[in-house]
Design a protein around this nucleic acid. Sequence first.
DNA 1: GGTTTCTTTGCAGTCTCGTT
DNA 2: AACGAGACTGCAAAGAAACC
Length: 555
Amino acid sequence: MAFQCRFCPRTFALEKHLTDHLAAKGDHVLCTHNGCSKTFKSRDKMQNHLKKDHRATRPAYVPLSISEKVEIGTKIDRPRVTTTTMSLPSGNSLTATKIATKIPQNQVNSGRMSHNPPITQTKVQDPRWSIIPPPQHHEAITKLRQRTHTWEVLDLHVQSRNRKENSADYEPAPAASLLLPKRAAVALDCEMVGAREGEKEHNVLARLSVIDYLTGDVLIDSLVNPDKQVTDWRTRWSGVTRGAMNTAIRNGNALKGYKGAREELWKHIDSSTVIVGQALKNDFDVLRITHSLVVDSGIVTAEAAGIPSISLYGIKTACTELLRIKVQQGRGHDSVEDSLAAREVVLTCLNDPERLEQWAKIKREEYAIAEEKRKLKVEKERAERRAALDKKISWTREEWPGVLTKEEQSKIRVKIPRLGPTASWDFYLGPTRVPATATWATTISRSREEWIDGSRIVRVVLGPSRGLAEEYTGELGQWVLYDADFQHVVVPQTSEHSLSDADREDSELFVGLLAQVPEMILDQPLDESEDSLLMEALQPSSPELEMEDIGGVAL
DNA sequence: GGTTTCTTTGCAGTCTCGTT
DNA sequence: AACGAGACTGCAAAGAAACC
């Protein structure tokens, strides 16, 4: 009988020795810094090490505390979960040797398991997928654990909105126990079909496949009898047919709904198992599970490429471009294949950083080109709108005079701020009304110019910032204005911001325009009659200009 | 305490991309 | 094909702070 540490390869003859070891090594928290193999007793100590020795900028992965995961000192007398009965040629490297021959689907395990998790399952033998020789299992798991996503990433890209709204339905994996050790890491994929509930169609689980990350063993590959009436089998994508489902149900091979599938999954994993997959958010959603140790191949590739959108590269793209292997070629997806593909992408990302960087470099360049194209398109559209606007008035923006003639005034409709919600103001006049630390970032994106009833409306809206406040918030100056294209904020003299010539020109232009507004009403709330007074003040004196010329709207 | 002023938040629509 | 999600935007109401 041996006492084995769950977190490292060491075994101990006496329970006391294991207890002492755990007391010394604590959570075995691995340093998340590349190339550092130190382990620490607690997450705090590891964080201190990161700050002190590596000056970490990326939030570190913080595993569960050991008390949450294992019952310390429990006797075990069984092979480690990371060992396998798979026979391997000696000297295999992580990615060099691959086993051929794909298994027929009818040999895949039905998913009905005994109480104890099976150590050996059906092996997927396909030259596309790497095998990991048993001597390298510990290293593979260490690397994988180091790459699990931070809480922030999990919250953003893995925990679904559904989960946050219906948290009662969701279940975490069972707590780890030395009495019932489960798989160290698995790759998982689900196939979904459509079921209508009310007026909307929802995804429901129809097939669950789970692969042992280390051995490639198929732990689960079962159809799941949906707990709702299926309205769309989506066979073209899901590969699931009504006939196959009926047969599986008749033979007792189908799992019962997502709860049955979840129970089956719990037989193989616990809270210390790392789950690997592609876009696991979708899978977690249909399984109604939560998990904190996750490596999502979509997130890994997106992070490597430095692309903001985390779901930019699907599994097919990653396999084709990064691994140069083909997946999803048949009729519908195969969740066993997708699981293995996600596993393969993760293995490559972890073990072949040079190849990953090569691919990422290409993707960054492609992304930069696409961004440039997008910007050009936006600029072109903006120019077209601008040209369309300028056609309607007698002068272009470049020719806009500092002081307008009365005729020109008639083509400008100026609204003076009313008291009320900021968002309804078209001009925000300072300094008395400009808050000392207003957030004006969103005004850049939210402000706009309009052409209404033959009048050019320039809207300048001070409002809240959504995401950019820090970048743009600051002490405001005498005026807060935008250029006619709302390209940037113009903050004259009193601000620390320096003005470009173009900014100054725009600023003077607007200030010149506003100077024509009777001063007496600038800082006063306006009622309808005062609006009319203002309109009169801005009206051309010649009676031939009727209200229609300014859109027939009295301000 | 009521009113005014300013900020924050929620909701909805559009677009794009990935999922099955 | 249908859906979900993120990003972006517009609009409006709620909430908070300042003022009288």
